[in-house]
Design a protein around this nucleic acid. Structure first.
Lengths: 343, 343
DNA sequence: CTAATTTCTTTACGCGCGTAAAAAATTATT
DNA sequence: AATAATTTTTTACGCGCGTAAAGAAATTAG
């Protein structure tokens, strides 16, 4: 690199000694040209630092090499991790990921889908808001663009869903908690934004019944995505009303648990197991910060690596299959119980 | 919306009864056409749901309407918030933000700058990795693309920098801590990734000298972005070595403090002020989770709103000025002390 | 109401690349 | 070495839009 600046593919083709259509073919798919030709082109790229104009490239291509990645909420470190893996895999496979966050708002989600449509992506990985999502907008989008849903499912939408098996989270925590101490109450938001929450509540009720235990669901007020504050306020409410039937609380998710534990601390209730502790708290998700709560939070971990990895692979297969699957695929990965000090 | 599908601008122009060049002008800048014309075009957009092909639009435009937004680390909720504000403001101003995260890796940062170059953005908001950044790559990039740095500064690069005044963080916390109790030691990573860390250490040393107090810096091992774990390990090390000269610790940033407090809890040391507590911990950043540590963390808050708001405004001014400022601007916003329960 | 000004229409060209078709060159097969 | 199969070159067109220039139309000023 260092020669004079190449203006366009015509010029690049001439300095590299390869015809323009072949160069164009190379940029569309490097493996589609003979190895010796590929080497010459790559040497020239190295030497001249040429990159084709992506706008001109994508204008006529029926399908671009773009992949849209949409998450509901960026300030949740959970998605930060997922996105990191997804982006890396996309780039390795020769795609250009475009990242979008709905920031918890349905209107934003709609706008993002609109924007994505005009990006003509080869495929989209979409983690929808959930309950708040404009279902019909998502449905219409999925009809036009090959889409794999992840994290939270919406029945029938997209060609596939990849996520965690909520039942496996709850069954493990409930089993563990009731085996090692008093049975848990279930602490959750009254109107949860995420459909996973409903699955978890049902799993809780089911597991308690199976174990022959009396279920007890604590539904707290609050809406939106400020889970910690909702958990804290709800926690204070529950504690002051003395609404806990046992000394064990199972939170629907870690962020709620972080808030709840903060309320416990403020109310002078000691969280942990064994002598000298007032109550046990456990939760689900293995949020990146759950290791650092005081005490560290016993939780059930997403199989982050498999969820993100399999979501990407599914999308690649979908793209290769021309954007449609015969039948909608649903893949759920099991959780892993992480025993720490809170329960 | 609901009529037949419009294929291109030619067709849209004819159904809307406006000539194509005028329609083109409208999409480039809606205010550049007469109000009555604008109304007719917008009615037609509404009716036919037409959106111009962004690839064709951007191909010939010397300057696109894209704005690149680059953050060093997505899994940090701090940046999630910043990005939310920035994106909203960009969209309101008629730009299309493209979000990128370096995920803590210099190579990724370089690749992102490469990608951004080919996006031909009108401007870029860049929060660099800091110490790890490939300075020469950033410098070369800033020469080609109008760039405003934010969060962490690199001397002389970009046309402007917008961030927080690290001195104001530390001076407030040091002043508060030494006024209300024993003077603080400063707890930080030996080789911090972020240049803000160095400014904070110097501010600590300076403030302690001013107050006529003996400074004491605790530099702990570890590199990378897993601050909580580094803080926890370093915390255990410091506590077990009995290396604290006073009962007060000031952490360089909240994530480190979260780890440190986790170590304190594990070691049975009670954090907080007043009787019955072993040590006080304070920190800087007002990380979204700092309210929910146990005890809640006393810290100095970024002026999030002003930093993100002013960064965007500065970039808009820069774009309007043709991409160059006479002299590099530096804007620092002061921190606000948030007194909670940890100190 | 006329003149000056602003806005719009008409016409026309080009951007950088995708892509199709036919011919030429290269490589593989027998 | 001759034939078949693959890959590349040549030639050519078009995508959807930006944009420039000249003239027509609409608006504003006087």
């Amino acid at each position: 690199m260092g020669e004079r600046k190449i203006k366009n593919m015509e010029e690049f083709a001439s300095v590299s000694g390869i015809s323009r259509p072949t160069v164009s073919k190379y940029f569309n798919d490097p493996t589609s040209v003979r190895a010796s030709t590929r080497a010459r082109i790559e040497a020239a790229i190295e030497q001249y630092g040429y990159r084709p104009n992506i706008y001109a490239m994508n204008q006529n291509r029926q399908l671009t090499k773009n992949i849209g990645v949409v998450v509901p909420y960026l300030a949740d470190p959970f998605f930060g991790e997922i996105v990191r893996v997804i982006e890396r895999r996309c780039i390795e496979a020769g795609f250009s990921p475009s990242l979008f966050s709905s920031h918890g708002e349905a209107e934003q989600e709609r706008d993002i889908l609109d924007t994505l449509r005009s990006l003509k992506p080869a495929g989209v990985l979409l983690a929808p808001l959930g309950r708040l999502s404009d279902k019909s907008a998502i449905e219409a989008f999925c009809r036009d663009v090959p889409t794999v849903l992840f994290d939270s499912n919406i029945d029938g939408m997209g060609e596939a869903f990849v996520g965690s098996d909520n039942y496996s989270f709850v069954s493990q925590t409930v089993e563990y908690l009731s085996r090692t101490g008093e049975p848990p109450s279930f602490f959750e938001m009254k109107t949860p934004a995420n459909p996973n929450a409903n699955k978890r509540r049902r799993a809780y009720l089911d597991m308690m019944e199976r174990l022959g235990l009396e279920p007890h669901v604590l539904q707290i007020d609050g809406s939106g995505w400020a889970f910690e504050e909702i958990g804290r306020k709800g926690g204070h409410d529950v504690l002051s009303r003395d609404a806990l039937p046992t000394n064990t609380v199972l939170c629907s998710n870690d962020r709620l648990a972080i808030g709840f534990m903060s309320a416990c601390f403020e109310a002078g209730r000691k969280v942990g197991r064994g002598a000298g502790h007032d109550l046990r708290v456990a939760s689900h998700d293995d949020h990146p910060f759950s290791r650092y709560t005081c005490p560290s939070l016993t939780t059930a971990a997403h199989d982050y690596a498999n969820v993100s990895g399999h979501a990407v692979e599914t999308l690649f297969r979908l793209i290769e299959s021309g954007g449609r699957f015969q039948t909608r695929e649903e893949t759920l990965f099991s959780a892993r119980l992480i025993m720490r000090d809170s329960a």
